[in-house]
């Protein structure tokens, strides 16, 4: 995979560009600020080194009552100008960038009816359990008592809605260009769903079901990594994301559906354990 390099990975989702824009803009600003201050700082260090016969010059502090607040503190206030510039930059960044982009990425997950694909991703120590609703479009019942290494989600196969659910471990297949709603859950501890190419990261919290969405824009094979410490096997908790053409995706779904009701085989419940 040539997805990764010394900089940001390739962009493979609709909002990856928006996030990269922010990262690049801020780093440009940071570099500018650092270089300007650095040059000034270096100049001060050389210019004002101790020299015989040159005493330090104090700034004029007008403690007098004449001149008013602004005039008396002009020197001090002038030195706050850089601060004001940084503040204006930050305000612009918040209002024109952070608020709208955050709203679109994190605050407005699509309604399940509007999403092209709905998939449930359940994190556990140390694997990703992925479930598609199957032909009926409904996620069936799952019970914690039924959890077994052959049935990591505890699916109740007697429930007709659950019987056709498609389960895969550590593999997430998505059609390119389609809006996918991912319902993120955790069985045990806090995990984190991170696909670097999607620029998508979200903690999976037990007891909560967190909706998030992605529109993959590039066919390819990506990595789904856990980014939140989840135990001794944290670094081995990874999965693969396959973004396919819609036809390939449907084909794959059909091939998985044909496997049912075979219990999800040995690949499950393990990230190498």
């Amino acid at each position: 995979m040539n997805n990764y390099g010394w900089g940001l990975p390739i962009r493979a989702s609709s909002f990856a560009g928006q996030i990269d824009f922010g990262i690049l803009l801020i780093h440009a600003a940071m570099a500018l600020i650092f270089v300007l201050w650095g040059v000034f700082f270096a100049y001060l260090l050389v210019r004002y080194r101790r020299r015989a016969g040159t005493p330090a010059q104090r700034e004029e502090h007008h403690a007098s009552s004449q001149g008013g607040f602004w005039a008396n503190n002009a020197g001090e206030l002038k030195s706050l100008m850089p601060d004001v510039l940084v503040m204006l930059f930050e305000i612009a960044l918040i209002v024109f960038y952070a608020f709208p982009v955050w709203r679109s990425i994190k605050m407005s997950p699509p309604d399940p009816k509007d999403a092209d694909v709905v998939v449930e991703v359940t994190a556990e120590q140390f694997a990703w359990d992925v479930r598609y609703p199957g032909p009926d479009g409904k996620f069936g019942r799952a019970k914690p008592e039924l959890v077994h290494f052959s049935n990591p989600l505890g699916l109740d196969r007697t429930d007709p809605a659950a019987a056709d659910d498609i389960f895969v471990a550590n593999e997430l297949h998505l059609p390119v260009g389609k809006k996918t709603l991912i319902r993120l859950r955790s069985k045990d501890v806090v995990h984190d769903f991170f696909v670097p190419e999607f620029r998508l990261k979200q903690d999976a919290v037990p007891g909560l079901e967190i909706p998030m969405w992605v529109v993959p824009t590039r066919i390819g094979h990506y990595e789904l990594a856990c980014a939140q410490l989840c135990g001794f096997g944290h670094s081995l908790m990874r999965g693969d994301v396959y973004v396919e053409s819609p036809e390939d995706f449907q084909k794959w779904l059909a091939s998985r559906a044909a496997l049912k009701p075979a219990p999800p085989s040995a690949s499950n419940n393990s990230g190498g354990f």
Binding site: G22, I23, F34, G38, A227
Partner: peptide
Amino acid sequence: LGFIPLFAIGGLTGLPLGLTVTDIYLHDT
């Protein structure tokens, strides 16, 4: 004097982490 520029790097790199959108990617890295 070493404190000033190096702490400044620390402060500046806080900017993309404090901003919600860029933190999506940089968080926990």
